[in-house]
Design a protein around this nucleic acid. Structure first.
Lengths: 107, 107
DNA sequence: TACTCATATGCGTCATTATTCATATGAGTA
DNA sequence: TACTCATATGAATAATGACGCATATGAGTA
């Protein structure tokens, strides 16, 4: 316990947080999330929008669904997906802003 | 262009953002970043603190360094690493808060 | 120079995971 | 029931990335 600081060692829940980031780290998944925005869209729309294969979209939607990052809603033979929490988009925006600032600094 | 909305399609820079998240998705790397906090520490300290092997720490530090997420500073035979931007910690805190809230909601 | 300590790097291996193909489920409709 | 469309799933493959071992670099010191 020599140089314990107030700022360090704050991430007890590194595991939980890294799992979340892993979900967002997949370009296809991030594209799906961002593409959804605040709207609900059927899978076929997501497929068309992202250009990914239907199989692949379904795969990633399952991952996101099981993590609670998207919520499915059946409507007829369609299944609509949407973000359960708008705050997620704000967080993503914060990172984008940060990345933008970093890019300025680094050149 | 049938149902283009204001909220969707906002992530032009999905690739850049997902690369950043990929860096943070590695538990070891996240541990290193969080462990650093606002301080500068030599590699040997990071090794001791994280319990990771020296090789592995160096490996991850390189990844983080090349991405601009840590900055090295030579001091004698030691190389100190620190975060170049304190805002990074705030962003991580925001996510932790969000994850906490999600956990409440989901049960 | 020779020696030590701190850190970095090349290489091989193992584990994880994204992707595709083919097929199954499940709702709607005739 | 049979048929179609929307979505999900299983199996196989391919790509990525983390980790350890051995070794190299580079600074300090005698």
């Amino acid at each position: 316990m020599t140089h314990m600081s107030s700022s360090a060692y704050k991430c007890e829940d590194v595991k939980q947080l890294s799992q979340l980031f892993k979900l967002l780290a997949e370009p296809s998944r991030l594209k799906i999330l961002c593409g959804l925005g605040l709207e609900c869209r059927p899978v076929s729309d997501i497929v068309a929008q992202t250009g990914l294969s239907q199989t692949n979209v379904s795969f990633h939607l399952r991952v996101l669904r099981e993590a609670g990052l998207v919520r499915p809603e059946r409507c007829g033979s369609f299944i609509y997906y949407c973000l359960p929490d708008a705050a997620l988009l704000d967080l993503l925006e914060d990172w984008k802003a940060w990345v933008g600032r970093q890019a300025e600094v680094d050149g």
